[in-house]
């Protein structure tokens, strides 16, 4: 590297100022103009998080939210050279630093995970669909699913409720399936029962519906009279919604 230690240190100091807003000593700067760099840099980060997590932004008191974003940007070295991926680092930072406890927002991790999954799915690279047939045996032919999906599990129904008051009384076990519509690229999501979440997970592994149904008793599912018909109805509906693409060829 051709940089002298002094120049290197000056660049570090300048970037520290931008990240933290803490007063620094820099030679040859116009002090009252330095503030604009911190403002412009931080506003960009704040706007990015606000756009990526609109539900969280609206749900969390603004002072708390502002503190979170400032904390994140000051103490986390942002790694992505693509700004749109930075919210993943924000979410990860929140989990690693137990912000759910620190800020008394028990559903925070679930909410950030849900909103990030939506953004990631919307933007992520195309995954070519495997070859499939449009007709086949629902029970015995492995199904081909839309590969552009995320199956998420939550302790709080962040995909169904947005207000703290409603969320806080509903701790439980929830599943949500998010997928990208192959034609429009829009993100669809649907709430799943534990059984349908299990089914989706197994189908993605290439297991047939019949084999999955056979496993139901081991999941202590005893109400099995309508399980097969309900399951097939769900899958047929999901074919209409472009999540089930068809049958393995």
């Amino acid at each position: 590297m051709n940089l002298l230690p002094d120049t290197y240190h000056i660049q570090q100091t300048f970037s520290d100022w931008c990240r933290t807003g803490k007063k620094v000593q820099l030679p040859g700067v116009v002090a009252d103009r330095l503030v604009h760099y911190r403002r412009l840099v931080f506003n960009n980060i704040r706007d990015t998080m606000e756009n990526a997590f609109p539900i969280a932004f609206n749900n969390i008191p603004s002072r708390k939210w502002d503190k979170m974003v400032k904390d994140f940007f000051a103490h986390h070295a942002c790694q992505s050279y693509q700004l749109w991926k930075l919210p993943l680092e924000f979410y990860t930072y929140a989990v690693e630093h137990s912000w759910d406890e620190q800020y008394d927002i028990p559903y925070l991790n679930d909410l950030l995970a849900f909103e990030w999954a939506e953004m990631e799915l919307y933007n992520m690279e195309d995954i070519p669909a495997p070859a499939y047939l449009t007709e086949g045996n629902w029970l015995d032919t492995p199904l081909v699913l839309n590969q552009e999906h995320r199956l998420l599990s939550f302790s709080w129904p962040v995909h169904l409720k947005a207000k703290r008051r409603e969320l806080m009384t509903r701790k439980g076990v929830y599943f949500a399936l998010l997928y990208r519509h192959p034609e429009t690229g829009s993100i669809q999501f649907t709430d799943l029962s534990p059984w349908l979440a299990f089914l989706t997970e197994q189908l993605a592994q290439g297991i047939t519906v019949r084999d999955i149904l056979d496993y139901a008793p081991q999941l202590h599912i005893t109400e099995t009279d309508t399980l097969e018909s309900d399951t097939l109805a769900f899958l047929k509906e999901m074919q209409q919604q472009h999540f089930v693409l068809g049958f393995q060829s």
């Binding site: 051709n2 940089l3 120049t7 660049q11 300048f14 931008c18 990240r19 412009l40 070295a77 942002c78």
Partner: peptide, 28 residues
């Protein structure tokens, strides 16, 4: 300009010190 320092992206254009060692660094 520069937009990354100490392994952290800043996502904005920060001014480089106008110095000869910075010139050599950038040229390379």
């Amino acid at each position: 300009s520069y937009s990354k320092c100490d392994n952290a992206h800043m996502y904005d254009l920060l001014p480089i010190p106008f110095r000869m060692d910075a010139v050599r660094h950038i040229v390379s």
